[in-house]
């Protein structure tokens, strides 16, 4: 079964064709990146899947359900460019938020949140305030929060966009490990070609006005037995980068 299924999806904001004729499938456990110039509709596509935006036309299925039902059932977790933690809650309470909203009892949600903080390597900071954490740590908390309801799908809109290069690479390795351990599918928006290549099974290249999918490039997502840093130095990695770059140039002459 596919986790995300988009069929001829179109989205207009007045005269702006944010999305046009989008066909996309994300398989279970698959990691798919969306890349393209600013304004090509990457965020809009993600928001349509998340039921934060209604498509003008076309069909959307998330885990075989309507996006609305998927949202109500918390079938997906979402992380934005800003961590968006609630400053008045402790780190562990922030991770608990989705479960709290869904009426999970206190003991259950606390133990789940601690488990997730261990997964993202922040168990020692459970009782800290978000303001005491660095940007990268806050983003890890946001990812843990997105994972709280054990979603089969993770939606991420430039989650590492505000981080420095070193932190970013470390976060990419973390995310790969988390995606592997949870076996969740990931739909990931980024502006960085190397990031898209190193993380993804497939890199979806988009072009603006109207927002369309122009190309799909196979990424270099490492398997269990392979280290990310090895991938970053491999020739396959560089040729995939070249392929994505050319696809971007082609869509944007």
């Amino acid at each position: 079964m596919t986790t995300v299924h988009l069929d001829e999806v179109q989205k207009r904001f007045g005269d702006v064709h944010a999305l046009d004729g989008i066909d996309l499938e994300v398989a279970e456990g698959e990691f798919v990146s969306l890349i393209g110039p600013s304004g090509c509709g990457k965020s809009t596509l993600l928001r349509v899947v998340a039921d934060l935006e209604q498509p003008t036309s076309g069909g959307v299925l998330v885990g075989g359900k309507s996006p609305h039902q998927a949202r109500v059932d918390q079938d997906y977790g979402i992380a934005f460019q800003q961590a968006g933690l609630l400053e008045w809650r402790s780190v562990v309470e922030n991770v608990e938020l989705p479960l709290h909203v869904h009426g999970v009892d206190k003991a259950t949600r606390r133990s789940r949140a601690i488990e997730l903080l261990e997964l993202v390597g922040l168990a020692d900071f459970a009782q800290s305030r978000p303001s005491e954490l660095s940007g990268g740590m806050q983003q890890r908390v946001a990812i843990a929060r997105a994972l709280a309801p054990s979603p089969r799908l993770l939606l991420m809109d430039e989650p590492f966009g505000a981080l420095d290069e070193m932190t970013r690479e470390r976060m990419q390795a973390e995310l790969l490990r988390i995606a592997r351990e949870t076996a969740a599918a990931v739909l990931f928006v980024t502006h960085s070609i190397p990031e898209a290549v190193v993380l993804s099974d497939r890199v979806v290249v988009m072009s603006p006005r109207p927002g369309r999918i122009t190309d799909v490039v196979t990424g270099e997502r490492p398997g269990v037995d392979r280290d990310v840093d090895d991938v970053r130095e491999s020739s396959a990695f560089f040729s995939a980068i070249t392929a994505v770059r050319e696809a971007l140039r082609k869509g944007h002459p």
């Binding site: 998340a50 934060l52 934005f80 968006g84 008045w88 909203v101």
Partner: peptide, 29 residues
């Protein structure tokens, strides 16, 4: 309310009352 918090609560399918209790009210303190 910060837009990112608004989005988050919508994505979590929070009721208006939960929205007020978890985000709006504490944010307004």
């Amino acid at each position: 309310v910060r837009p990112v918090h608004d989005e988050l609560m919508t994505a979590l399918a929070a009721t208006p009352w939960q929205h007020a209790r978890f985000v709006r009210l504490p944010g307004a303190v």
